[in-house]
Design a protein around this nucleic acid. Sequence first.
DNA 1: GATAATCCCTACAAATTCAATCGGAAATCT
DNA 2: AGATTTCCGATTGAATTTGTAGGGATTATC
Lengths: 144, 144
Amino acid sequence: MKISTKGRYALRLMLDLALRDSGEPIRLKDVAHRQGISEKYLEQIISVLNKAGYVRSVRGPQGGYVLARAAEEYTAGMILRLTEGSLAPVDCVEAGKGVCDRECGCATQILWKKIDEAISSVVDHVTLEDLVAWQMERTDDYVI
Amino acid sequence: MKISTKGRYALRLMLDLALRDSGEPIRLKDVAHRQGISEKYLEQIISVLNKAGYVRSVRGPQGGYVLARAAEEYTAGMILRLTEGSLAPVDCVEAGKGVCDRECGCATQILWKKIDEAISSVVDHVTLEDLVAWQMERTDDYVI
DNA sequence: GATAATCCCTACAAATTCAATCGGAAATCT
DNA sequence: AGATTTCCGATTGAATTTGTAGGGATTATC
């Protein structure tokens, strides 16, 4: 019941981009250094965000990444679901998946549904802009 | 971000015991058959519940397991935390663990905390008795 | 007391997932 | 041309999950 590094790093990556959003591309290498995350690993993660159109990439020198939209247009749920796959606590309450093979009709499903809704109600209402605000409350400089 | 089979099976196991709670011990073999779970694997799981005093065991023929307390005295959170270890979405918001090495001071922690609280507010308020009631609404017989 | 049923314990193993690492190709600025 | 940066796919080591396997201890019943 843990969020993997993929989701956590993706969120920190997007937060990093949002904090330094000036229109100029931000090099992944810099993000990696600031966040203490392997550059190569971050590549894989931002590749997913890029394909989803969450960031825009600029190749070559002076290149890097820029947020595709304003920070308030991203929810934590969007970012986490994209990178984690799903935030549902069990398979059988996931959107696409219909019934579960055996647990169907099982009362525990009601619990899983409630947990799923509780998680969603948080992540779907916290935006990247909220994270930016929280970060700026905590530290004056942007060293995360 | 999934609850493992250990937690899910533990909950179904406890629900099964609660639904058939008559004072007589219930054989693990029967639970395993009803739930379609390997008997040997269930042994490992109930061993944890037994050591925690959540169930009482009776050895020998006509033996089995009985709930140690009334169903309303167990929350889903108790059972899941015992078998899953922790329901916190990331290590750094767990109770015992102090700071996280690097993400400390990071705004994402606030999000993780909110998710953790949302999950807890569900699992700490749903009791085994609730699950029993939900199950009886769904099916007249107790075949889960 | 013998037998059979049941819980109890520990070790092992297959499969999957996680968390990267590695090596290079393609694009682009100067 | 050369340096910089993103892009892409393969591989890998470790950890975790999800069980299996085999036997030991206890006890009700005959």
